[in-house]
Design a binder for these strands. Structure first.
Lengths: 125, 125
DNA sequence: CTGGATCCTCATCGATACTG
DNA sequence: CAGTATCGATGAGGATCCAG
């Protein structure tokens, strides 16, 4: 960490804020999509399995509010809205990629660890 | 995250799994503490402001289950339990540091963005 | 097509009390 | 010291309907 002090002061730790901001898989999914190319509302709805309209809208608003997405409205007859990742978001995305790579590397380990743990702590059947 | 058990087979993209695993400030706070040095239960309870016993235990169990923490019990008369970060967790921590730095760099921007957004979308004055 | 507003459910979390 | 068990409050999130 840039500031190796205040080890356990979670409130002051910026990473907590990032986690909170990105908390919920929806934000990340949207961010990933929008970083690759400007995306439309319906496009996101189709490409993110299981997301509800409500959460899509809510998450989009939050990301927009935090300056991670830019919302562009084209006043055409069928309304068209595009969401574009800002530079800030693209930079964040690079770090998320770091996490992705970690996840990919350790996914098998985690799965194994869970299996082992569950077997160990199995509810006597 | 506080779910007692995450599904063993997650079909989601790896980054979503990381986010889910680390979602909630407690996991990160604990991870940070345990990465720096082995920590005891009460030590965590004292140093993580606002955490409840329930969440502390739950989060510890999940991290342990995923192979990110190792739980060591010393069968002494006053029981002593130490939680130690695994290599896997330490590697994850390095990536979390990347996120931290991003957060520190962009925190002012985000705050500004929110202020601007809120002013723009103020409930019709 | 893009969302805002509403209702309602259920999971999550905090507080408390109890135990090895 | 290091937890577990239980209960109640809170709010995130899904479903639905309506509007620009």
């Amino acid at each position: 960490m840039a500031t190796p002090h205040s080890p356990l002061q979670s409130e002051a730790c910026p990473i907590v804020q990032v986690i909170d901001r990105v908390a919920g898989k929806w934000a990340v999914s949207i961010l990933i999509a929008a970083t690759k190319a400007p995306v439309r509302y319906t496009e996101l709805e189709r490409n993110i399995p299981g997301i509800s309209r409500r959460m899509l809208t809510l998450t989009l608003r939050n990301l927009e509010r935090d300056g991670l997405l830019v919302r562009t409205v084209y006043p055409t007859v069928p309304p068209k809205v595009e969401y574009t990742a800002t530079d800030s978001a693209r930079e964040l995305y690079r770090h998320l990629v770091g996490l992705t790579e970690w996840a990919e590397r350790h996914q098998p380990d985690i799965i194994q660890a869970r299996i082992a743990y569950d077997r160990e702590h199995a509810t006597a059947a």
